[in-house]
Simulated scan of single mutants.
Amino acid sequence: MKGFNILRTALLASLASVFLLNTAYADEALKMELTANKVVKNSEGKISYLPVRTAPKGTVIQYKATYSNTINENINDLAVTLPIPANMTFNGEVSPASAQGSIDGKNYADMPLMRKVDGKMVKIPFSEYRTLRWNIKLLPANKSAAVALNTIVD
Rank of each mutant, 00 (worst) to 15 (best):
N150Y: 01
I152P: 01
V153T: 01
I152H: 01
D27N: 12
A26F: 04
G92I: 09
D118G: 12
T54H: 01
A109H: 08
T35W: 01
I6C: 04
Y108N: 14
K106W: 08
N74K: 10
G119I: 11
E33Y: 03
G105N: 14
D104T: 12
G3L: 00
Y63E: 04
F90P: 02
S43I: 07
L11F: 10
S17M: 07
D27G: 06
K41C: 05
N107Q: 12
T9I: 15
V40W: 08
M32E: 08
G92R: 09
E93R: 14
N150H: 04
I103S: 03
N69M: 04
M114K: 13
A97H: 05
A24S: 14
K106F: 13
I61F: 10
L30R: 04
M114G: 03
R130K: 15
M111L: 15
V18I: 08
A145G: 03
A99N: 15
L12G: 14
N76S: 13
N135S: 05
K120M: 12
A141P: 07
I124L: 05
I47P: 05
T89K: 15
L7Y: 07
Y129P: 00
G92F: 13
R53Y: 01
P56W: 00
L7C: 07
E93W: 07
F19Y: 13
I61V: 15
K137Y: 09
G58K: 06
S43C: 00
Y129C: 04
M1E: 01
S102Q: 11
V147T: 08
V60N: 06
A26D: 10
N37Q: 13
I136F: 07
P56C: 02
N42F: 06
F4N: 00
N22I: 00
N5V: 02
Y49L: 14
D118W: 06
R133M: 13
I61M: 14
L11Q: 14
K38D: 01
K120I: 12
T66I: 09
A13Q: 15
T35G: 01
A36Q: 02
N142E: 09
K57N: 05
